[in-house]
Design a protein around this nucleic acid. Structure first.
Lengths: 194, 194, 194, 194
DNA sequence: AGCTAACCGAGACGGTACGTCGAGTCTTTCC
DNA sequence: GGAAAGACTCGACGTACCGTCTCGGTTAGCT
């Protein structure tokens, strides 16, 4: 039961880095495992040893560049929500990102074992957003019995819906009305904005 | 300046019919233009003359089977909205449909000239939903200054969001709370449901 | 049984002219009936009404530009033969012509009804060459009982053979030796050359 | 620097064998790479990895069945030459072979990198023919200073020329006269035949 | 020190579908 | 009935990726 040669840990990083790069350049469509391996100076076999399919690799790569986006809270719940929604809308405004997001969703739908990983991608950001509400409670800006998740769904959901599915524009005015309506629906006292 | 041989209008129908069938059978992944043409008794070139790519054909095929879904209005706005949302949720609950929807979105994101057609797919259903609000106004159930589109975005958007992106469950209880919150946020009098 | 619309006699010329042009530009491979018709401002149907296949059209087109080559006789049989052989060799030296010639041969082999027309293409030039011998007889330069056809076969045949089949070079020195041998074999008095 | 998976040498053989078979059955026109791959139980991509185009494969296949033809030398140069020429003429008399030969020539003219291979096809047979002369020298049947290549060109060239280009018949009588003329032209003593 | 096991690069392989090209036929309208 | 226009069938082409496999060679840990 000897050990065998240990994995070269540098491989993961190099491959994912290249994968990320290629996603940025050509999007999902022109993302070919062959080329990733090539550019990373790695054999295709080695790639497949770690990520069982192209989709798995893509998800892994995307996971690393969602980390960057930071969410700053200013204490003003309404404003923070608008800002977050705007950031998402801005992202989805870029064709490349829009494509990537939809391909990720599709990947999750194609391969059940990927679904969880894909959901996880957005979970982190969602968790960060939910923190805003906790903070707001502390400041008495918000009643205790509201359902932050529901509010977020209404806001973020609407943004994705318009950007990906209906194709309707998502401008600042819309976002303000959206956030206001969602907060009002939950009975949150209309802070400073009205 | 004679016209030339007129297009065989039967081709459109036959091909789309076959395409629809194949989508039902094998989903997006196993949808091959070659086979569609074959089964429809048509040359592949003839298919490509009308639909410049596989994606175009898929979109066209899907367009025809969204027509089936009828929306019945009972007069009770809240209940109707819940029902619609539930229908959507139920659809997205099926892996095949979930995949198809996400592939369609991706197709729209890939090829700009397809985007409009894809948006159009959902537009019809959205329009039908919006009619509910007009009807409700007539019955005095609803104030005149609310923005039905915004309310729909919050509801439908949330459903898509959970089903496709976060993977969270969309049960009846959730839907009721969702619809209530959205209506409340718009200042619609909370009809019978509390 | 009225007459119907008479054929537009300009069509033949225009089409053949365009065909010739296209052969010069792109050779046999890129010669597409569709394009010929297009450029000639003629319907494809019209082309096919006159020439039953692509090959037929090509042969017809080539026939018109073999007319150009003139054969001048100086009275010196040996020199004339060398010059003719050299002209052929020069032509076959150009890849385009080499391809064209071989495609013509192939066309003849493919379609029996074309074979005659293709043979005819070279027949004219061969006839002209044979005249040289008749002239030489008049001048007493040549015996009466030789078979000019055989001599020509030996010379021209060798040139085609090397150019098309073996790929061996056909230079001036070779040609001189070739012609000398052929004439000697027929017992023709070795004129000035040796 | 590792090798990678070694090529399955069986593939070459199987594919070429099938290709040869298909050439015999349907000639050049009905030779489809798709089918060759299929019948050989090989993926089309594997075929294209070795032979970059249909033409390349055809040439390779033909190369293997030119090997069969054996040339027997009886010691009588003149008779041997006649026999060889007759064999060639007989081959070219079959429409299928005539077509194949001309398509090969055309393939060579189309793709420069194929030219060499095509020339090579005939080179072997030519070499065998040239051996006859060497043998004849040993027997004193032939002078030492003649150019066997030139003689062969005149004979074989004439045969190809008539069969492929002028379409004139190539019968036994013609061949005898041809060989005699060629040998006489080179100053070879006219053995038994006059 | 030797054995064994896992890793790695390289690259062949089967498979599936794509979109394209061109030939030749058919159908319509106009003259 | 000729001609223009263009839709249609048919057949094959060469390409692109995917994911699997089979090599030779390396790099550990265990005995």
């Amino acid at each position: 039961m000897g050990g065998g040669r240990p994995r070269d840990t540098g491989v993961e990083e190099r491959v994912v880095a290249v994968a990320r790069e290629m996603l940025r350049e050509g999007g999902y469509a022109r993302f070919a495992v062959d080329q990733v391996a090539d550019r990373a100076g790695v054999a295709k076999t080695t790639v497949y040893r770690r990520w069982p399919s192209r989709d798995h690799l893509v998800v892994a790569a995307v996971a690393t560049f969602l980390d960057d986006v930071a969410i700053e809270e200013t204490g003003d719940l309404r404003a923070d929500l608008v800002r977050i929604a705007a950031a998402i809308a801005a992202g989805l405004g870029q064709p490349g990102i829009r494509l990537l997001v939809s391909e990720l969703i599709a990947a999750g739908a194609r391969q059940p074992d990927l679904a969880a990983s894909v959901y996880q991608l957005w979970a982190r950001r969602r968790a960060a957003s939910l923190d805003l509400f906790a903070a707001a409670v502390g400041q008495g800006e918000q009643a205790d019995d509201v359902d932050p998740g529901l509010i977020l769904d209404q806001i973020i959901g609407a943004v994705y819906y318009r950007a990906l599915i209906t194709g309707d524009p998502v401008d600042d005015d819309y976002l303000k009305r959206l956030v206001s309506a969602a907060l009002a629906g939950a009975g949150v006292s209309s802070g400073g904005l009205a």
